[in-house]
Nucleic acid binder design. Structure first.
Lengths: 132, 132
DNA sequence: ATATCTGTTATATAATAAGTATAACAAAAG
DNA sequence: CTTTTGTTATACTTATTATATAACAGATAT
């Protein structure tokens, strides 16, 4: 598979998986209805434990990004992705505040910060331009 | 002091301290040269351990946001804040990518995401408008 | 039917991180 | 010379992360 895990990172493996899968959906490398590898095969593929993969799948299922069919395996949500709710607004504001604060202290202007945000968003989408 | 800690939060206490102190500097509630409470008094004030406060101070000292004078205590960096270096650019890009990906999946446009980033930045600075 | 593959659940264990509790040290200030 | 500072060291508890096995129930194909 196209995923990569950094075992030396300070960010937990299951969290790396969650992030990469969401980025995969955002960049259209993963489309609604696309099947995901089974917890066992992906775990074996990455050289990690079954439960670590399962934890990531559970979180994404809980948030509505994935669906689970018995035996069919895990599938990218085909019935519409979850929208921008209050919980996400709070999470987004919290994350942006931390980043914006340090950026401001380091001398980055509001315009620069906003442009950097836009640039990252843009680059994310164009990464999956040639998704099959 | 003006700091507040959420003991029920999933984010470590020392990390909450780091974030809030940086936000304090960004909003000019903390100005260069301003003295910070001693590790013991702040710990007692928040009802936490001395070492938890010290860990936060150490991180901020390491990054150049604080200075330490023996006996004078901890002081907000008076000799110019650290600038935008490669390490911060990477940290910023990483953090923004995670947030942008979920925002995109949830249907937020690039313009909306950028505007939200600007809004958070703006609100951060205006929070300390009446800093003494 | 009967293996096989799926997610799921249940334990148990090890490794690491976070937080606390004490104690002590050296430097600076009163 | 006592006090307060950051700093260092040690020990302990708790929670999180990750792994290791095992087993179960539903779905699929042989």
């Amino acid at each position: 598979m196209w995923m990569e895990i950094d075992l030396q990172s300070e960010v937990p493996i299951y969290e790396q998986l969650v992030d990469q899968l969401i980025e995969g959906i955002a960049s259209a490398q993963l489309r609604p209805g696309d099947p995901l590898p089974s917890v066992r095969s992906l775990a074996a593929d990455l050289g990690i434990n079954l439960h670590t993969v399962n934890k990531a799948y559970q979180i994404l299922k809980q948030d509505g990004f994935l669906q689970v069919h018995r035996k069919q395996g895990v599938v990218v949500q085909p019935d519409g992705m979850p929208g921008v709710d209050a919980a996400f607004r709070a999470k987004l504001a919290r994350g942006l505040r931390t980043l914006a604060a340090e950026a401001a202290v380091r001398g980055m202007t509001e315009a620069e910060f906003a442009e950097q945000s836009a640039a990252v968003y843009r680059q994310l989408l164009t990464k999956g331009e040639d998704a099959k």
